[in-house]
Amino acid sequence: MGKWDFDNWAESYDEDVKTDDWIHRDYLTVLKLVAERAKGLVVDIGCGTGNILGFLNCEEYIGVEPSAGMRGKFLGKHGFEPLNGHFLALPLPDGSVDTVITTYAFHHVPDEEKEDAIREMLRVLKPGGKIIIADVMFESEEEKRRIGEMDGITEEIEDEYFATVDGLKEISARLGLECRFQRVNRYVWVEEMKRAT
């Protein structure tokens, strides 16, 4: 995570996400889509400054954020502080939450750690709970390359660990999960995962 300076980015983050660049296109729409699906006790991994709180209507909310700068900004905005943790080490007991959400953060998890991150989300999930991941994704590695070349963003794409729908379907199959995907725009998808019944 040291690759990205989140502590300093915290100062300008809320302004940066308002720019309609390729990553943050339809940003508020994406937050609303995730918030509508989140129920019960919700844990938000990589919660940043807590922008999704403007849309959530849940029983209880727990933010998890590894950056002290982001946690401080969150505290200033919302009056409480997220927990210090990350995708591979959630500071929560087994089977304790109804919905795990993450928006625009999963692309910071290296590809070889994505399955471990999903396992950790499953660990804290109650039976019948669900995981909602909203982020820049691509249908396949081939599409990732093609869009990068067509849109002149190959360098930006290669600087992150953007998931593919194909890859997440494979992980879901290995973990016995049902998954469904909604494409929001050219770059952003929302995935919902839950244990197969």
Rank of each mutant, 00 (worst) to 15 (best):
H108N: 09
H108G: 10
V109F: 10
V109Y: 11
V109S: 08
V109A: 08
V109M: 10
P110Q: 05
E112P: 01
E112A: 03
E113D: 14
E113Q: 13
E113R: 10
K114A: 02
K114G: 01
E115H: 01
E115R: 01
E115P: 02
E115Q: 06
D116V: 00
D116N: 10
A117W: 02
I118G: 01
I118S: 02
I118Y: 01
I118C: 03
M121C: 11
M121R: 02
L122A: 05
L122N: 01
R123T: 11
V124Y: 02
V124G: 06
L125E: 07
K126M: 04
K126H: 05
K126A: 02
P127I: 03
P127F: 03
P127H: 12
G128F: 07
G129R: 08
K130V: 04
I131T: 03
I132M: 12
I132P: 12
I133Y: 10
I133K: 09
A134N: 11
A134M: 07
A134D: 04
D135E: 07
D135C: 12
V136T: 15
V136G: 03
F138P: 09
E139N: 12
S140V: 07
S140T: 15
S140K: 04
S140C: 09
E141N: 14
E141H: 09
E142V: 14
E142S: 08
E143V: 14
K144Y: 02
K144A: 11
K144Q: 07
K144I: 03
R145H: 06
R145M: 08
R146F: 04
G148W: 04
M150F: 05
D151I: 08
D151H: 13
G152R: 11
G152N: 12
I153V: 15
I153R: 10
I153M: 10
T154N: 01
T154A: 09
T154W: 00
E155M: 13
I157S: 06
I157M: 10
D159A: 15
D159G: 13
D159V: 03
D159Y: 06
Y161D: 05
Y161H: 14
F162N: 09
T164Q: 04
V165Y: 04
V165Q: 09
D166C: 08
L168H: 04
K169D: 13
E170P: 07
E170L: 09
I171Y: 06
S172V: 01
S172D: 00
A173E: 15
A173S: 14
A173V: 00
R174W: 05
R174F: 04
L175F: 04
L175P: 03
G176E: 07
L177A: 02
L177I: 01
E178Q: 13
E178H: 12
C179I: 07
C179G: 13
C179D: 00
C179N: 14
R180N: 12
R180E: 15
F181N: 10
F181P: 01
F181S: 09
Q182V: 14
Q182K: 15
R183Y: 07
V184K: 11
V184M: 02
N185D: 15
N185E: 07
R186D: 14
R186G: 08
R186C: 06
R186I: 10
Y187N: 03
V188M: 05
V188K: 05
V188H: 01
V188W: 00
V188T: 14
W189A: 13
V190C: 00
E191K: 11
E192I: 12
E192W: 08
E192M: 13
E192L: 10
M193E: 00
K194S: 06
K194E: 01
R195W: 05
R195L: 08
A196Q: 12
A196N: 09
A196V: 00
A196I: 02
